[in-house]
Amino acid sequence: MLEAILNPWPWYVSGPLIAAVMFFLILSGRNFGMSGNLRTLCAAIGGNKACDFFKFDWKAQRWNLVFSIGAIVGGYIAITFLSTDVSVDISENTIQWLQQYGFNDGGSAYLPEQLFSMEALSNPKSLILIAVGGFLVGFGSRFAGGCTSGHAISGLSDLQLPSLIAVIGFFAGGLLMVHFIYPLLFA
């Protein structure tokens, strides 16, 4: 049992647990959506003075900020107490595919050193790439009205057509990035 917790969790355990989190929030009268926190943070740091989109009662969203603080603490607990080896056992195909773009730690790390190590922070290219990635995540999720949690899990669970369109976009964008833009960025 302890072994099973310390190892990576299989998809058939993780997926239903994510659904359980969603149900707990719904039964609490809330909704499951992480990117909404980015808007709340914008409002909280003064964005409400800049434009109407951030003029809303952000304090009503405080529960979700608390939830995201929990998500931070959960990451700390998971890596500190609930993991022995954090290398991610991805497929041999992906490992080899990544090597041609200079990612040599596929299969032996949780995140690629080339983008997310402290050394990478002093490399302008790596820094720009993760900043652009984050920017697109923030811009795109708000434009689409939600991210993976709000659309791919909550919206699709509720059989919402707009969420299906958004999720098709998520995959179109991801496939475009990995198959057509990576060769330009990392060649």
């Binding site: 992480m34 995201s68 790439l129 990635g133 795109g140 689409a144 009205g145 964008g173 475009l176």
Partner: peptide, 24 residues
């Protein structure tokens, strides 16, 4: 949904993290 979703997907593919995991 389509345009925003695609922009989000581009970022998801590059940063490799959606908003939940960013915090984690």
């Amino acid at each position: 949904y389509l345009f925003g979703g695609t922009i989000f997907g581009l970022g998801w593919g590059l940063a490799g993290a959606c908003p939940g995991p960013i915090f984690t």
